[in-house]
């Protein structure tokens, strides 16, 4: 199933949750909608599901108008952030719900419903919980039951709203891997919403970065990480150093300090320079584009993180390999291995 969204606008009062969104999702894709809270990603998901309606714009599934149908007819599996399991039903009945409410003409008989539910519970590896109630399950278990319930209706599209948002870090990592292999197995066009960049980059085939109701960039996880299209994407994905610089007469300045960086093709005026922390290479004084004094150094997993006061006036944090000799008080040169400058 392909999904196409055209020029979607949705306002809540004067707040534009979606401000002209265009998106194409290919058949069988696993797409992540990534953005900070309030960026409109959940609204977009709910409109695709038919749980919200846009003020204007188009949504089509396989070329046919989806907005002409209600949520009930769209055949979309939706997994809610807080699971929304039916609290008065057992796990079994929760999963069976979508099969039991089908019109009499197409409804399966009891034996086939039981077989199908069993199959789904096996798929999410929770068949032993069939007689429990949702309140007796852990967060990760609820999440997987919610997924099994959504899959019961053989959805054309699977939508997941912050699927791992309410889980602790360990369960979350396991479920991520599991979701990716599950998607590989069932191969349904899927979209999930997340504010966690790591989650988006690790799970999705393609990532859509959103901010303030607009799409900032669409691309593979590598694309959005390696070649961010906008200042927002660069700042949002990956740990970043952001420096306010001035571009004038072919020279880039940080405060009063001219930087030894090429200014070719840059628009003159106030700009922002983005460098990933680990792309700042440490060298002897005078060797790089920047110079600074190390304030203090902390060991941080595989790297050491140093706070450096640049001679231009800003203080930044860089990540250097553990074997690099760095001490507080050292003066060092810094060369950005890779950087981007965005006007404004």
């Amino acid at each position: 199933m392909t999904i196409e969204v055209k020029n979607l606008v949705k306002k809540f009062g004067s707040f534009a949750a979606l401000d002209g969104v265009d998106l194409k999702v290919d058949n069988g894709e696993l797409l992540a909608l990534l953005g900070p809270s309030g960026s409109g990603k959940t609204t977009l998901l709910r409109i695709i599901a038919g749980l919200d309606w846009p003020d204007s714009g188009e949504v089509s599934f396989n070329g046919e108008d989806a907005l002409a149908q209600g949520a009930r007819e769209r055949h979309v599996g939706f997994v809610f952030q807080h699971y929304a399991l039916f609290r008065h039903m057992t796990v079994f009945e929760n999963v069976a719900f979508g099969l039991r409410v089908q019109p009499r003409a197409v409804r399966k008989d009891e034996a086939s419903i039981r077989a199908r539910v069993k199959e789904l519970l096996d798929l999410v590896q929770l068949d032993w919980l069939a007689d429990r109630y949702p309140s007796q399950l852990s967060g990760g278990q609820r999440q997987r039951i919610a997924l099994a319930r959504a899959l019961a209706i053989e959805p054309r599209i699977l939508l997941l709203d912050e699927p791992f948002g309410a889980l602790d870090a360990k369960v979350r990592k396991e479920l991520r891997k599991w979701l990716r292999s599950l998607h590989h197995e069932i191969n349904v066009t899927s979209i999930f919403v997340t504010h966690d960049q790591e989650e988006a980059l690790e799970v999705a085939n393609r990532v859509v970065v959103m901010d303030k109701g607009r799409i900032e960039q669409i691309g593979s996880p590598d694309d959005v990480y390696e070649t961010p299209a906008t200042a927002f994407v660069h700042g949002f994905i990956g740990e970043c150093i952001e420096l306010p610089v001035q571009v004038a007469d072919g020279v880039i300045r940080l405060g009063e300090q001219p930087l030894k960086l090429a200014a070719d093709g840059l628009v003159p005026g106030a700009s922002r320079l983005f460098v990933r922390r680990h792309d700042m290479l440490v060298g002897p004084p005078g060797s790089g584009a920047f110079e600074g004094a190390v304030q203090h150094v902390r060991n941080f997993g595989p790297v050491q993180r140093a706070e450096v006061a640049l001679s231009g006036g800003e203080t930044i944090e860089i990540d250097a390999p553990r074997d690099k000799e760095l001490r507080a008080g050292d003066t060092i040169g810094l060369e950005p291995r890779r950087y981007r400058i965005f006007a404004g």
């Binding site: 769209r74 939706f78 809610f80 929304a84 609290r87 719900f97 409410v101 319930r149 209706i153």
Partner: peptide, 13 residues
């Protein structure tokens, strides 16, 4: 309204 929304998306009238 989440449970109701879930029910409708699962095809309930």
């Amino acid at each position: 309204t989440q449970e109701e929304e879930a029910a409708i998306s699962l095809g309930a009238s």
